[in-house]
């Protein structure tokens, strides 16, 4: 049997171990990218095989945290895919401005880059005081890093470029402090962000949202899990609420597509049309 087929067996056993031992279900993750991540984990931890990883996951109490961190959403950028922020600024925020209080859910926040980007966008629109951002992830380790809001300074040129393309109104340096080779986001950006553990695979609706951002997370899920998550988003959104996904993601292969209306042909920003909790 070829190594790749033996690895498939190992990945299946690893997935089973994570589920039975720790309650994390990766069974509905897109297999090709999940296998890559698991093999990457084996390399990063200097292990010999996925089986060795499985053994550690079963017997080592604390090991699971670093595994979950590395299997969760990868690191992002400030103002990644900047054209989306232009659309949010020009098309979505003016609509949301009519609400006295605005709930925003950023699902799959990883290290928080997107939550801070959103906070900056809202500040520049003069709306941040009225907004509550719920930034969620299923990795506690990632959430702890997101709470800190510290990023490598070497990424600054990319962030600056993104911020400029996103139509930033000030200087990005006004929102963070550069020290040694690190950038720390200012505390005031964190004021209305709640970082919380939520697993899209197994957790449910936790509030009524006006805008949900979930970019480049659905690409890692199979159809049934995508449908589950999109159903969760639909049921969380107020009527007319907005869903923003990654520029290369779409709802066209999903069963909930009819509950959403595409806002712009170029960008994956959708508006919820059907009544809440509709079948």
């Amino acid at each position: 049997m070829h190594l790749t087929d033996r690895q498939d067996i190992e990945v299946a056993l690893f997935t089973e171990a994570l589920r039975k031992r720790h309650g994390y279900d990766f069974g509905q993750y897109a297999p090709a990218s999940f296998k890559r991540r698991v093999l990457g984990l084996v390399t990063a931890l200097h292990l010999r095989s996925v089986s060795e990883l499985t053994e550690r996951v079963i017997h080592d109490e604390t090991f699971i945290h670093s595994v979950i961190e590395r299997l969760s959403v990868p690191v992002s950028e400030l103002f990644r895919e900047p054209q989306t922020f232009v659309a949010l600024r020009e098309r979505v925020l003016p609509e949301l401005a009519s609400y006295p209080h605005i709930n925003i859910w950023q699902a799959g926040c990883a290290h928080g880059e997107e939550a801070y980007s959103m906070a900056i966008l809202l500040r520049e629109a003069g709306m941040y005081e009225r907004c509550q951002i719920y930034a969620t992830d299923f990795s506690d380790a990632a959430l702890a890093k997101a709470q800190e809001g510290i990023y490598p300074a070497r990424e600054m040129p990319l962030y600056l470029e993104n911020y400029r393309k996103a139509g930033g109104k000030a200087r990005l340096q006004d929102y963070c402090t550069e020290k040694y080779d690190l950038l720390k986001m200012h505390d005031e950006l964190r004021a209305n962000i709640t970082f919380a553990n939520h697993n899209l695979v197994s957790d449910g609706v936790f509030g009524e949202m006006h805008l949900i951002l979930c970019r480049n997370v659905l690409i890692y899920f199979t159809d049934p899990l995508q449908d589950r998550v999109l159903g969760l988003f639909r049921d969380s959104l107020v009527r007319g609420g907005y869903l923003c996904i990654g520029i290369k993601e779409s709802l066209s292969f999903s069963g909930v597509a009819s509950d959403f209306q595409l806002l712009s042909r170029e960008l994956p920003v959708f508006r919820r049309t059907a009544p809440r909790n509709a079948p």
């Binding site: 297999p31 990457g40 690409i219």
Partner: peptide, 21 residues
């Protein structure tokens, strides 16, 4: 392949994208 995304093939002969490192 779209820029800035890895492109993968799944067993059902469908594409998958990833923004992994």
């Amino acid at each position: 392949a779209p820029p800035r995304y890895h492109l993968l093939v799944e067993r059902q002969h469908r594409f998958a994208l990833s923004v992994d490192e």
